[in-house]
Simulated scan of single mutants.
Amino acid sequence: MGDRTAFFYGTLMAPEVLHRVCYGPGTVGKDPAKTYLASQLSFQPAILHDYCRHRVRQCDYPGIVAENGHNVRGTYVAGLTDGDIHRLDIFEGDEYRRIEVKVELPKEAGNFVQAETYLYTAGERKLEKKEWSYEEFRRDKMHRWADNSNEYQEVDEAFEDDPTGGRGVKADTSVKTDKEAKEEAEEEERDVLNGAV
Rank of each mutant, 00 (worst) to 15 (best):
A109Y: 02
R98T: 13
I99N: 11
E92K: 04
K107T: 12
A115G: 13
A146Q: 04
Y120M: 04
F7I: 02
F112I: 01
R87W: 13
K179Y: 09
E183Q: 11
R97W: 04
I64E: 14
G2S: 11
G24Q: 02
R57A: 11
H86P: 11
N194G: 12
A109D: 14
L119R: 02
D172E: 15
L193Q: 13
R57M: 10
Y36T: 06
R125I: 07
R98Y: 12
L193R: 10
E189D: 11
M1K: 11
L41D: 14
Q40L: 11
E186T: 05
D60S: 10
V28F: 05
G166P: 15
K34N: 14
Y36F: 10
Y76W: 10
L48R: 06
T81F: 11
R190Q: 12
T35Y: 04
A38Q: 05
E67W: 01
R190C: 01
A66P: 15
G93A: 07
Y96G: 10
L88R: 04
I90P: 11
A6L: 03
N150I: 02
M142W: 02
Y36H: 12
D3K: 04
Y134D: 12
G29C: 07
G79V: 10
T164I: 03
D89I: 04
D31I: 01
A38R: 06
L88C: 14
A38L: 11
D156W: 00
E131L: 01
D178P: 09
R190V: 01
Y96I: 10
K129F: 07
A171M: 12
A115W: 03
F8Q: 05
K176M: 15
G74L: 00
H70P: 06
D50Q: 07
R87G: 12
T117M: 06
E136H: 07
E187M: 02
Y118Q: 02
E188M: 10
V28D: 15
K30A: 15
N68I: 01
C59T: 06
V192S: 09
F7V: 05
D178T: 00
N71W: 01
P45R: 02
T164V: 09
G123W: 00
F137S: 13
R87K: 15
A196R: 14
E100I: 03
E151M: 00
Y9W: 04
R20H: 05
G29Y: 02
R87T: 08
A196Y: 06
E104L: 01
A6K: 00
V192K: 14
A46M: 08
G10W: 05
G110R: 00
M142V: 00
